[in-house]
Design a protein around this nucleic acid. Structure first.
Lengths: 360, 360
DNA sequence: GCAAGTATTGAATGCGTATTCAACGGTCGC
DNA sequence: GCGACCGTTGAATACGCATTCAATACTTGC
């Protein structure tokens, strides 16, 4: 059992194969000029020595690490877990690695980005937290693209990918109205986040178009978590003088789920009989039997794809796309938490059919 | 808007501060010998240039990257999401970064580890997939510790951390017996994984001690997923000639949840009245209102702490701990899916009290 | 006030690889 | 059969930083 902590270098391989170090480097660099038989000899020698190319050393000269920083906040929201999963799958397929940073939701991401920069990452994907303009320009000056995922920052130079949250909020309002709801409430997320704000805005906007007054739409913060939403829902529905709202919008699915569980099991409310509920995101959990949540689907695949396009990892010299904000279309998925009006029967049947297998 | 993709180097900072490059390096290296006023000058110059030390370059000489590879399989099992979260929190606190690799559950992890090795990672945490002895020795020869999390590989040189799965399986059997169950079934996970095997073994072992015959214990594979378990449960309970089992062990919580939802909502079974259900892991989701799952708690905090101890990142020169297998104690959490026998009323009340706030 | 430390400092070097550059041999076209 | 060309090759160098080493300035003890 050797204790030689020595890792074989390209020189060792070169010596064994009887070639120069350059040849070893070329043997491992696709597209470089090397004779096939020589390459074979090198690979054979490398195999014998358990040689693994040192990406760290090579990135010193290539200026590319093939590492992408992914900054995550709330991993208790399954939405971001699926996002992480999707990015991981895609980036691995492109030969890239993911360096993970978790930050407190709502806090500054500057620290995390600074740590990431030390590793000369090729790009940053930000799914949480705030981003200062200073940090944005530091990254851009270095040629490192930053993409905001599921958020945007007004006036920021950083590009972002998200879905049409305002439109999605409107879709939920529309569904509630079609189902005959008269009084409304919502459980909101991060008050500083544009995502929550936009969903609220679309929802309210649409209701007001139908003559609902803003003061009639109740609003409680749910802190973007299952538990937070459960408490919020209870505070909203327990012990009140006003008549209960008959439609509740959870700004994201995990909060809608928390609200549903609390209202059903603590207050005995029946859904959708006593109360209709709408969510947002369409996480896989939303289609599970206890919820069958009517919600707005975010096109995660497209969002991930667009994010990668925006970073154009294969063309590092192309100038960075600045200030781009790409809202992708969202769509309503009819399930069981909002009574389906006759006009939407077909859509609901379609959703039910699509729900058979849970993705993954 | 500069287009200088040039990142300032320690030489640039040195020039601006009027010192040598060595001084810059020392200014950023805690514990190195440098006068306080000079360090201040360096830091000031660094700030002006937006200088960020290049960890990649420094690791070339220090032989330490402060990067840990975390290999994940099934991110659809919330258990591993919480594990990831915990590792991220802890490792960031220690100034380490996490490089994520996702692999197909059940497949070889060699590819992922090989990719990780290219980045000269300081350690590997494996929460999924198989590990070849060849890869183990490659890592060990290089002085890179590998820790198997929530698994072990018989005969492997790699160390592992897990809980007492056999004992945990026995606890569920014990609970079922105490609640008066007479006929049993289980939904199993990865048949190649020791974790699933051990839980099954403990469960069966304990039942057989009470005279239950092995052939009487039904067994269906649930593929470690919510959906897989849902199908498994339906195949187990729908259209059968034999009397239905009255106790079902889901080898992990996510499968127990899938089974519960399917049996309740598709077959109309009442839990625990018609059927008692036990799980394993105690993921946060298990305590949610629709489930209130009686399950075995894995001590994630301890497991994570032990994993980090085993890697002794701060003492890279200490010889690697080989073949260590640390089973930590697991314990039963009484909730609502198994009728609580009088003797366990106190334990159940305690669990209920502890459940008030969901962690995170 | 002098010798023996002690704390700082900068020049030089090495880490492992990619890449440039000049040299080489072989091939093709005519 | 000869020159131009192209595909290969290895020596040398750069990448950005930590560290060693020798030199220097500064203390302290007696």
């Amino acid at each position: 059992m050797k204790r030689t902590k020595s890792r074989a270098t390209s020189f060792d391989v070169a010596a064994l194969a009887g070639v120069s170090q350059s040849a070893v480097s070329r043997a491992f660099t696709p597209g470089s000029s090397i004779a096939e038989d020589k390459r074979a000899k090198v690979l054979e020698a490398a195999r014998m020595l358990n040689y693994v190319p040192n990406s760290i050393a090579s990135s010193l000269t290539t200026k590319r690490t093939n590492i992408i920083a992914l900054i995550l906040g709330n991993m208790h929201n399954p939405f971001y877990v699926h996002v992480l999963n999707e990015f991981s799958r895609r980036l691995q397929g492109l030969g890239r690695q993911i360096l993970i940073f978790t930050v407190d939701p709502g806090s500054e991401s500057d620290d995390a980005i600074l740590r990431a920069l030390q590793y000369q990452i090729d790009g940053v994907i930000l799914t949480a937290a705030q981003l200062s303009t200073r940090m944005t320009s530091i990254c851009h000056e270095r040629g490192i693209p930053i993409v905001l995922f599921n958020r945007y920052i007004p006036g920021s130079d950083a590009s972002g990918v998200r879905c049409d949250n305002v439109g999605g909020g409107r879709l939920i309002a529309e569904a509630f109205l079609a189902a005959g709801a008269k009084s409304f409430a919502m459980i909101t997320g991060d008050p500083k986040g544009t995502t929550s704000q936009d969903r609220v805005r679309g929802f309210v906007e649409r209701l007001m178009e139908e003559g609902v007054r803003r003061s009639e739409i109740e609003e409680v913060p749910g802190h973007s978590s299952y538990d937070g939403a459960a408490s919020a829902a209870l505070s909203l529905f327990a012990a009140r003088s006003r008549p209960r709202p008959d439609a509740l919008f959870g700004i994201n699915d995990i909060m809608a789920m928390g609200a549903i569980d609390a209202l059903r099991h603590r207050l005995g409310l029946r859904i959708p009989d006593d109360l209709m509920v709408g969510g947002f995101d369409d996480i896989p959990e939303a289609r599970r039997a206890p919820y069958k949540l009517t919600t707005v689907r975010q096109p995660i695949d497209q969002m991930v794809a667009r994010t990668l396009e925006l970073m154009h990892l294969d063309e590092p010299d192309r100038p960075i796309e600045r200030g781009i904000d790409l809202p992708l279309p969202s769509r309503l998925v009819w399930r069981g938490t909002v009574p389906v009006p006759p006009a939407f029967r077909a859509a609901a049947a379609e959703a039910a059919a699509a729900d058979r297998p849970e993705s993954g």
